[in-house]
Simulated assay, not measured.
Amino acid sequence: MAEPGEQLPEEVLALIFRHLPLQDRAAAARVCRAWAAAAACSAVWHDTDISCCCAQEGMLPPFLSTCLDHIRHLRLEFEPSKEPSRRVATELLTALAGRTPGLQGLRLECRGEKPLFDAGRDVLDAVRAICRAARELRHLDLRRLPFTLDDALVLRAARGCPELRSLFLNNGTLVGSVGPASVLELLEACPRLCTLGLHLASLSHPALEVLAAPGRAPFALLALRCACPEDARAPALPNEAWAALRRRQPGLVVEVELEPAMPAESVTRVLQPAVPVAALRLCLSGDSAGPVRFAALHYAATLRVLEVRAAASAELDSALELLAGRCARRTASAWCGPPCGTPSSRTARACAATRSN
């Protein structure tokens, strides 16, 4: 602790201030000139978390505008159903688009109740503005947005962010509005993209061929969410295309999330034998034992995580035991929870599909 009259070095103050929430940083900046300088230095703002709660209604600190250029990675949390919170978040994103071409990572997270269907237009317009301005953007995570994402956003990212490495669009929307053509243009425009989260309906056979093309940079993760009516109607992706992709990208990991909107016939189209599934999350309104048994037969060499929300049954127990036996030489984990849409008290029997060699 510094003696009275002494001042901690600016780099030490910056190390402390970087762990403070936004309002506390603003308070620290008002203490003295030395603290104001430390609170505004780039080390404090390189990785920034901002929560736009209603208590902050229109209270973005004035000194924040001088610090926007220093932000490289931003996680922004807000409540879209509450107008003041959404307004502050939108204002911040708009200001960020106009001030910081050096932004490299943006993650948006919504809290609280889901907003009205069209309540996200202002936020998505601001995200598109950032994609237009931030040429160095490498990571964009929109998984926690409840809004319907569209082709315009994906195309803006494709044309404005050539350095993109990861993009997550597999959010909780009720309507899938990102077409396969937009995703194909994204893959062709962003050759370094190695992590992609999509709704199933946004993925196509030509996209798999682009990922499997000679000279394509290693692709690490493909996260597929199957939750919309469009996902249920999506055509099957040929097993041969998955096999070719797996040969070309041996390090590829696929995560699959199946939700109640997927009928049994759609599930069988999604779960192709050659898909290198590492995580399988099942929250189906119908049969769950069948997909678990399929995973045991075809994914035992790659599966790391299995999550099942379903009613307990002898068939499901049998399928889990088969999976555990197939994964006996590897470490995997399985978790069974309450069925989708049922009270939490009606839990399924937990089954550990974990066996170590």
Score class of each variant (00 low, 15 high):
residue 42 S to G: 05
residue 336 C to R: 14
residue 97 A to W: 03
residue 341 G to E: 09
residue 226 C to E: 00
residue 210 V to N: 04
residue 16 I to A: 07
residue 346 R to Q: 12
residue 211 L to H: 11
residue 238 P to L: 05
residue 278 A to N: 08
residue 230 E to A: 15
residue 135 R to E: 12
residue 286 G to K: 09
residue 314 A to N: 12
residue 257 E to G: 00
residue 272 Q to N: 06
residue 288 S to F: 14
residue 128 R to A: 02
residue 179 G to S: 12
residue 117 F to E: 08
residue 14 A to C: 03
residue 200 L to M: 02
residue 58 G to M: 03
residue 124 L to D: 00
residue 134 A to E: 05
residue 323 L to E: 03
residue 120 G to E: 00
residue 337 G to V: 11
residue 347 T to H: 15
residue 111 R to Y: 05
residue 236 A to Y: 15
residue 125 D to E: 13
residue 98 G to C: 03
residue 273 P to C: 06
residue 9 P to D: 07
residue 280 L to M: 09
residue 75 R to L: 10
residue 218 P to V: 02
residue 205 H to Y: 07
residue 226 C to V: 01
residue 273 P to Q: 08
residue 349 R to A: 14
residue 52 C to S: 10
residue 262 M to K: 10
residue 151 D to K: 12
residue 218 P to Q: 04
residue 202 S to R: 01
residue 114 K to R: 11
residue 231 D to S: 06
residue 115 P to W: 05
residue 341 G to Y: 05
residue 82 K to G: 01
residue 66 T to Y: 15
residue 236 A to F: 13
residue 75 R to W: 11
residue 115 P to L: 03
residue 205 H to M: 02
residue 263 P to C: 09
residue 292 V to I: 13
residue 195 T to N: 11
residue 170 N to W: 02
residue 13 L to G: 00
residue 313 S to E: 14
residue 310 A to K: 12
residue 115 P to I: 02
residue 256 V to A: 04
residue 259 E to V: 07
residue 50 I to R: 09
residue 103 L to A: 04
residue 116 L to Q: 08
residue 40 A to N: 06
residue 110 C to M: 02
residue 66 T to G: 07
residue 2 A to K: 08
residue 191 P to N: 13
residue 70 H to R: 08
residue 167 L to C: 09
residue 2 A to W: 11
residue 183 V to L: 05
residue 293 R to W: 11
residue 302 T to M: 02
residue 6 E to D: 10
residue 153 L to N: 03
residue 267 V to G: 04
residue 83 E to V: 02
residue 47 D to A: 02
residue 255 E to W: 00
residue 210 V to Q: 13
residue 11 E to T: 06
residue 311 A to I: 01
residue 347 T to S: 14
residue 278 A to R: 13
residue 162 P to R: 07
residue 12 V to N: 05
residue 172 G to K: 02
residue 291 P to N: 08
residue 136 E to V: 00
residue 267 V to E: 10
residue 357 N to I: 10
residue 221 L to G: 04
residue 151 D to Q: 10
residue 163 E to A: 15
residue 347 T to C: 08
